[in-house]
Amino acid sequence: MIELMNASLTREGRPVLSPMNMQLAAGQHLAVLGPNGAGKSSLLRLLSGDHACSGGWVSVFGDNPAKMSLREKALRIAMLGQKPDLRFPFKVEEIVALGRYPFAESPRRTNSIVLEVIEALELDLLIGRSILSLSGGEQQRVHLAKTLVQVWDLQQPGLLLLDEPFAALDIAHQVSARRLLEEMRSRLPMTVISVVHDLHGATADFDQVLMISKQGQQIGFGSPLEMLTEEQLSRIYGVGVRTLYFEDGQVAGHSANSS
């Protein structure tokens, strides 16, 4: 269980997140939605233990992540943050292998996991290439792969935090990445929390949605169908949002109108 109990965050005297409340069952996939500057990435950093709560508390499977040792955290919590600014010509597979740093294992084991994830994310053709020579979308996929290898063989309940994981990916690679994530979730004791902007497919992928307003306040927490209503989305983004449906009643997507 991942819990936020009146968890708030103040940075340099400025309130970033107002008290948040949430109970997310283990194994679920939560989407965090909100406009730019709402504090979504800060919420991930509260959950990863990078920031400690200014008020209230955070619990990740019963532990306060800000109090866990870095090593203990690395074995249970993986996070894809903003794309790092790399300046050295590491090869694609070398960057992905860094995700296995916390584990004392044979190089052969590391290689086999790295190759599995590289294949699943269709990065095979980039093997041997320098990360500096890749496009933004390709680099994003490499960093996603590095994060996924960290939780590839989770033995104990773990948490995967993803900050806009599909932002720079084309549609085909979004589909393969989402498929891989679902496959991992079905096989591992893994809870996933993703910050997303793209609402397409949100209802299908996510079990729960947490909405945050521009002011860093929790607007709501619940199932995608409850949360992703035209009223809620229009309210948090400040533009008129319409929900589009397939013929069978499934949500096809959302469209903003500027009028």
Binding site: S48, D50, L70, R71, K73, A74, L75, I77, A78, M79, G81, P84, D85, L86, R87, F88, F90, E94, L98, G99, Y101, P102, Q150
Partner: peptide
């Protein structure tokens, strides 16, 4: 050497991989 590899990702990323 391996620590230096991880540090090139930045402090936050290194922290997520268990390095102070």
């Amino acid at each position: 050497a391996a620590v230096l590899d991880v540090l090139t990702l930045g402090d936050a990323e290194a922290g997520h991989l268990g390095i102070n």
